[in-house]
Amino acid sequence: MRRARASRQSAGNGNTRTPADPSAGEEWDKHLAGLRRLAGADVKETTVASPLDQFTIKPIVPLSLGKLDISFTNSALMMGIAVALIAGVLVFSVRSRDLVPGRLQSVAELGYEFIAGMVRENVGDEGRKYFPFIFSVFSFVLMGNLLGMLPGAFTFTSHIAVTFAMALTIFVGITLIGLTRHGTHFFSLFFPHGAPIAAAPILIPIEVISYLSRPISLSVRLFANMTVGHIILKIFAGFVVTLGSVQFFILPGILPFGMLIGLTALEFFVAFLQAYIFTILSCIYLNDAIHLH
């Protein structure tokens, strides 16, 4: 906290310092422009790129369906790359069908058995039918998170539109599975087994609200984690430049740079963890719908 505040002050100094002497100011601007060129920012702009710029959706091929704008964007491009990579690894690696797997085939088998085990443990044998879907969800989210870690890449899982659409699809699908399996008996999910009848007026609304909030928590958790992680990475990268550019005093840049390295490792972990949480919660919700607690 203290460090963050100190860094913020230094960053503020770096951004807002306006020397009184005009010649010195000219020199300062030249200096900043050079730094921005180094940092890859647009030289013509006089302001540092916002940490939120990385989330901007940029249309590549403008398209529209009726009044809807369905342009092929950087987000769609990353989704396509993710799908191509997943399919490429999984289909290509097992093409030789080796009895003793190679490196890539091991990865594919490991992923398969990881998700198959997750479905088996959390849903049981009835979950076998939904294994391809759960596997697709996990691999798509994981690949989205990991691709976002590439410098300059776009993270499609950092957008609430994407995570909420996925969570809502899962939620609606699971609710339909529960309804077709159990009919009206499905609604017993909203009343904990063995609770006193008198508690129903309190318990049922709580359970209904908690059930309805599932897609929100599922999508916001993923979107917020990815967004926050990337903002923090961007800010610390900014600190490296602003602190490191203080004349005669380049050392302070090393501190945020070290932090940046640690945060990058943390973000890789978060990328995997959030994909795992998103998937296992889907499994748990599916189990609720199939087995009703």
């Binding site: 369906l65 799908v83 997943i86 391809p132 994407v162």
Partner: peptide
Amino acid sequence: RFPSQIFWLGVAFVVLYLIM
């Protein structure tokens, strides 16, 4: 920007699901 994201998410995910 929501419609294009959701549209391409649907396309990408359906393709992924079918391949998987």
